[in-house]
């Protein structure tokens, strides 16, 4: 991992080259609190993500990073505060939840591909059944994205026949097939063998370069330096610190951030 970080340090950050909307809000969280039973996982989270922004969230294990991004597409329910995604507030209204999930793609640590379906079927399932797209069109789109993640030749295999890195790229393609407006990544490379991390990060960088709105939980600091507009540090369910990547890495403000960075960058 540190090899990669070093390599990426030499790359110029791509962020300034891309436009971030100053008026169009993609995700907004206001005073969000969440409990698991008695356990207070998220405390007064305030976060505004503009369209085109790329956010990296890091922090020690158990700090609530996954819980935070899973609240964005309501895989987890928050108990207090407001979450507005793409102009729709997440409440118990199932219709709104469905609408939000349609527009928000998510990539998981363990890929969560459907093992009984081929790669192509994994990619066309949602467009056909959720977007009601004709099969032929869905397959064309799927092949387009499989080409983008550089595995078109695997289309008719099953997930179990692919390597971890390939599976994660399929998972990204599967999300992209729904043409999402926001992409969430929850530690997409932590379950991968080191030699496969780069192929997945490359795809994510490519996506960032196209201006996709991204919220990534990751400890790949090279990736954060290269593409993030903002790095957020979480601990104990709180956002401790957020800053642009250069300031975040060179000049962290809080003790806990310094401690965390010293652990992760060595």
């Amino acid at each position: 991992m540190s090899d990669l970080s070093v390599a990426a340090e030499e790359l110029p950050p791509v962020a300034p080259a891309l436009t971030v909307s100053s008026t169009d809000v993609a995700v907004e969280m206001v005073d969000v609190n969440k409990w698991y039973g008695e356990f207070h996982v998220l405390r007064d989270i305030n976060l505004k993500v503009m369209r085109g922004e790329r956010i990296v969230i890091c922090g020690p294990s158990g700090s609530g990073k996954s819980t935070l991004i899973r609240c964005v597409n309501r895989l987890e329910e928050h108990q207090k505060g407001q979450i507005v995604v793409d102009g729709k507030e997440l409440t118990n209204d199932l219709r709104k939840i469905d609408e939000v999930r349609r527009e928000v793609g998510m990539v998981f640590q363990h890929f969560n591909l459907f093992p009984h379906l081929t790669i192509l079927e994994n990619c066309t399932l949602a467009p056909i059944n959720v977007r009601k797209m004709p099969k032929r069109e869905a397959e064309d789109i799927a092949m387009h994205y499989l080409n983008r993640v550089k595995i078109p030749e695997q289309a008719n295999k099953y997930p179990g026949q692919l390597s971890g890195g390939q599976q994660q790229r399929v998972a990204i393609a599967r999300s992209l097939c729904m043409n999402p407006r926001v992409m969430l990544f929850d530690e997409p490379t932590s379950a991968l063998d080191p030699e496969m991390i780069k192929e997945v990060l490359d795809v994510m960088v490519g996506l960032a370069l196209e201006g996709m709105t991204m919220i990534c939980v990751t400890h790949e600091m090279g990736f954060a330096r290269q593409v993030a507009n903002r790095v957020i540090f979480m601990d104990g369910g709180q956002i401790i610190e957020q800053n642009d990547p250069v300031s975040f890495f060179t000049n962290p403000q809080h003790e806990r951030t310094k401690l965390f960075l010293s652990q992760i960058l060595h």
Binding site: R101, F108, N112, V130, M178
Partner: peptide, 11 residues
């Protein structure tokens, strides 16, 4: 994860 994968796609 299978449930979450499906839900995240909007099924």
């Amino acid at each position: 994860g299978q449930y979450e994968g499906a839900q995240a796609l909007g099924l």
